[in-house]
Amino acid sequence: MLRRISTICVIILATILIVVSCGRKKPAEKDGKDSAGSAKQQYASKGDEGTITGKISFDGAPPASKKIDMSQDANCANSAGEKTTDDVMVAEGKLGNVFVYLKGGPVDKYSFPTPSDPVVLDQQGCRYHPRVLGIQTNQTLKVTNSDSTTHNIHPSPKVNQEWNQMQAQGAPAIEKQFGRAETLIPVKCNQHPWMKANVGVLGHPCFAVSAKDGTYTIKNVPPGTYTLVFWHEVLGEQTQQVTIAAKESKTQDITYKAGATPGAPSMQIGPTLLLP
C-alpha cells in the first residue's frame, strides 16, 4: 500500500515538473523578427510619414466610480489622491486611457529601432501612474515606487516571461524589458489588489494613449493601409481601417457607447481548459 501511494505521489510530482519544464515560456527574443522567426528589414525613414489624430468620445452615462478600500494599509489610506476607481475615465463625454495602435501594413513588415529612453511606471498613492501605457519591444520599462510602503509588481503576460518582484519604499527602480509584442499585459500589485495597470508592447512606435480629453496623436506613420485598433480595459476593442498617404494627416474619431462592455470582467461559464 505504502509503495503504491509513494509511486502515485512520485508520478504526480514528476508530471508537475514535466509540465512546468516543458511548458516554460521561451525567453524574450530580440526585436526585429517576423512570426516565422526570420529577421525583418530595418525601416528606413523617407521623411514622408503621416500623422493620425483623433478624439475618443463616450456616449451615455459613464459608470459610477466605486470607492476603493485602502484601509488594509495605513500608508495607502493616508496618501493623497482619489480613492475611487478610474478604470473608465470619462470627462465631458471624452474617454481617456484608450490604447490606440496600428496593426498590419508597413509597421508589421519592418523592424524599428528601440528607443533608448525608458518608459516610467510609477506607484504613487498606491495607484499606478499611468494606468495605461505603451512600450516598444526591448525598450526599458522603469518601475518606480514613490509610496511610503512596499509594493510588488506582477505583470501577467501570455507570450512574454512573467515576473513578480517586490519593491520597498525608497528602493531603486526596477528595470525590465518585454521581448515580444503583446497587447496588452495586465500588471497588478498583489499586496494592494486594487492597483492595476496595462502595458501595450509593440514592435513599432505607432501607438498612443488617449488623454483625459479623449485626444490622441500617432506620429511618424509610414504610408500604407492599416487597421487602427482602439483598446479599452473595460469597454473592449474597436477597429477602423485607415490608409495614410505620404505626409498625410488624418483624423480618426471614434465613440464608445455606454452599456457596451465587452471587455468587462465576467464569470467564465464554459468549461475552457487553460492548463498548459
Partner: peptide
C-alpha cells in the same frame, strides 16, 4: 503572489511588522 519569494518571506523567516500589511 503578494510575497514573491519562497521559502523565505521578503528574505526573512519572520517578516518585519511593517511588511505585515494588506494582502501580505
Amino acid at each position: 503572489d503578494s510575497v514573491p519569494d519562497w521559502p523565505l518571506s521578503f528574505g526573512r523567516w519572520l517578516i518585519k511588522s511593517n511588511n505585515f500589511i494588506a494582502n501580505v
